[in-house]
Design a protein around this nucleic acid. Sequence first.
DNA 1: TTCCAGGCTATGT
DNA 2: ACATAGCATGGA
Length: 278
Amino acid sequence: MIYKLENDIIKVFDKTQFNPKHILECGQVFRFGIDKNGNYFVISKDNKATIIEKDDCCEIISNNPDYFVNYFDLNTDYNEIKTTLSKNVTLSKMIPFGEGIRILNGDAHEMIFSYIISQNNNIKRIQKIIDKLCEIGIKKDGFNAFPTIDELANAPIEFYQSLGAGYRDKFLKQTADALKNINLEEIKQKSTDEIYNFLISLQGIGPKVASCILLFGFQKKDKFPVDTWIEQVYYNHFSNKKMSRPEIQKYFENEFKEYSGIAQQYLFYFERERKTKE
DNA sequence: TTCCAGGCTATGT
DNA sequence: ACATAGCATGGA
């Protein structure tokens, strides 16, 4: 156990496997930032958590501690996973850059819309578009909840056109309409392949976006999404052999098995931190 | 100005 | 089954 619950505050003691910067800036989530006190915060669904770094622990202050124990995946031992993944020599050299990364247990519905927006886009603009999308979400204490399926389905196409999302606006509207009569909790009971096929049947979702949604929204850690950054990691650090993105995905999923998605985050964070100075 | 960003759809072969 | 043009927008 790496955490304790005290007066609705989660105290995480093992900082080698919990680092708010690594967790939030490794590209898996978009509704986060640093508040005026210099503390990281993250919004998920209709919940918000603020993370305060102390000398001996990180304190997670939120409206819903149970939600965030699950959200931050606090019952999983990431040091054990790191040891396993370190058998790959190339990856073992990159893990220290993002040693406190954890895969967040995000909301499936929120991940679907977030990652439709993410296609052929950059993270800063993705965040701006999602922020605008959330303006129709319920007002909470200092933030907006992510809009529900009904709120998104009831919004007219003009709303989506006002987001600055470009050609993705119609994908968002079509997906909102398609999801209106679907219970995602029932979808969750299906096999990974069945969920994948359901996801790519939605407009604006292809192999990469579906893999992200499976990993971050359906907690399928054996998925390894391949985007432009991962393609570069592959050619810069693993092989010069020309491969398609689906082939690169297979290559890494075969290498990292049930921890593929976690390996992917270390690689993504390493490559992106190396090439973007803030 | 051109290129690129967590790619997908549509339309060829 | 695989290859590629076109796609909205904004920042470098």
